[in-house]
Design a protein around this nucleic acid. Structure first.
Lengths: 242, 242
DNA sequence: TTTCTGCATGTTGCATGCAATTTGCGCAAA
DNA sequence: TTTGCGCAAATTGCATGCAACATGCAGAAA
């Protein structure tokens, strides 16, 4: 774990290796991350009211960083914040989820279009490996792993688009989309379709076909959204048995 | 300012008019709004370091709401926040500005595509009026008013797209774009071109031609970005005389 | 002269306390 | 029974205080 590069004899100057900057995170960032996770995973159910005092003891921080965390999440649309009343976990309607995926589809179309000509060979190799793994996961029917890798591939494409502002615009939508995905793990028939779309998307990217990649990404995300919205709609009509 | 609707005689039930909910804003929101304005308008110049204590007395609030405001702006990318050091106003490079407009162009393409089939007659009329006014402003060469209305038209189209998440993704980019625009009020030749693009965009929307409207919006925003980035680049090479 | 170390100062991160606002409940009046 | 009023508890918004961290400088050592 040496930070100082040792030379033979006394170096003229202390050679500090710039080193991988450990991004030390404050309590409010930790709180925000944990809250985000709890919301996305449904530990904090939709509609739940978040009392600052309760949350602060639950997370082991004081109210100040907690409030900062809540404001961050509110900016991402992951909590509803009204003045002088408790924060709440939004309960998105299927219609809102559809809107969300419409926006996400549009943005991922952009990222795919930008990524097609720009993606580096290294990232392309990375994608190739992930795509192969994804196919295996589909073949072996391991849903959880498929989903996780799916997300990772989408993120990789966003990265490959090489446009920070676009990535920043994408992130908050992605968070909410994951919320929706996790409670509507979609049907088997859609799974096969999804896997196929992923293969097509990869081919288009490999072929540096921006328009085609964009179109596929758009269709892929939008159809995912439609299926998820339908699932949520059905589930809302007939609430989960317990 | 009555909130209660009065009936003749005693109403069977107090008729509360849902009323235009006066969104009472807290200090942190006010602080955020003022800071945002100061940054966009250049009162706080690029690269300035923002000391919490100084800012808090300047804005007349304590550090707590000020810190919350800073976090909000950081989420929008309007300030750089590093742990345990003072916040700074970012000084975006022309390259970053170009990236920004690339993203913005993509998103406004989406909004135009969505707006074309969806825009209501009322909003269309609104747009028609604004477009006529914009033409007059171009003819009379009143730059400030042209810019303000220009912004408004773009916002109107975003509204017409009728997709909240997309609008939320658009807003932070728009804020930074305004920063760039204000310090690179663009050249006369570009002005004529821009006015023409606006007319074309309006026509495409009026004709409900989604693809065409999207393409025009994309070109329009991207070219704006190129011109602004070039201006900033030139100005950076030869800093403003004083 | 150059480099390193320790301290002083300035600044942020967080916790806590208090005032203001909301909300639920009880009780009286119609 | 229903409606209205008022108080009390709960909760948020904000201010302030203190500890931790960063930065710059002076002085000592090489």
């Amino acid at each position: 774990m040496d930070v100082v590069a040792r030379g033979r004899g006394r170096p003229r100057k202390a050679l500090i290796v710039p080193a991988a900057q450990v991004h030390r995170i404050g309590l409010h960032e930790q709180a925000a991350a944990r809250l985000k996770d709890m919301i996305v995973r449904g530990v904090l159910p939709a509609g739940a009211t978040l009392v600052e005092t309760d949350l602060s003891v639950a997370l082991g921080v004081s109210r100040t960083p907690l409030r900062e965390a809540l404001k961050l999440l509110a900016a991402e649309g992951l909590v509803d914040l009204h003045p002088n009343r408790s924060a709440r976990v939004p309960d998105w309607t299927p219609e809102e989820i559809l809107e969300l995926f419409e926006a996400l589809a549009g943005i991922e179309r952009l990222t795919a279009e930008l990524a097609a000509p720009r993606i580096s060979e290294a990232l392309m190799d990375d994608l190739r490996g992930k795509q192969a793994q994804l196919d295996r996961m589909h073949r072996d029917q391991v849903l959880d792993a498929y989903f996780a890798l799916n997300q990772e591939i989408h993120r990789t494409i966003v990265t490959a688009a090489h446009n920070r502002p676009l990535a920043e615009a994408h992130a908050p939508l992605q968070a909410r989309a994951q919320w929706a995905r996790l409670r509507a793990l979609s049907s088997g028939s859609r799974w096969a379709e999804s896997a196929r779309e992923h293969r097509d998307l990869f081919e288009a990217l490999a072929g540096r076909d921006a328009a085609e990649a964009g179109a596929i990404a758009h269709r892929h995300v939008l159809r995912t959204g439609v299926v998820i919205a339908e699932t949520l709609h059905a589930r809302r009509a007939a609430p989960a048995a317990r």
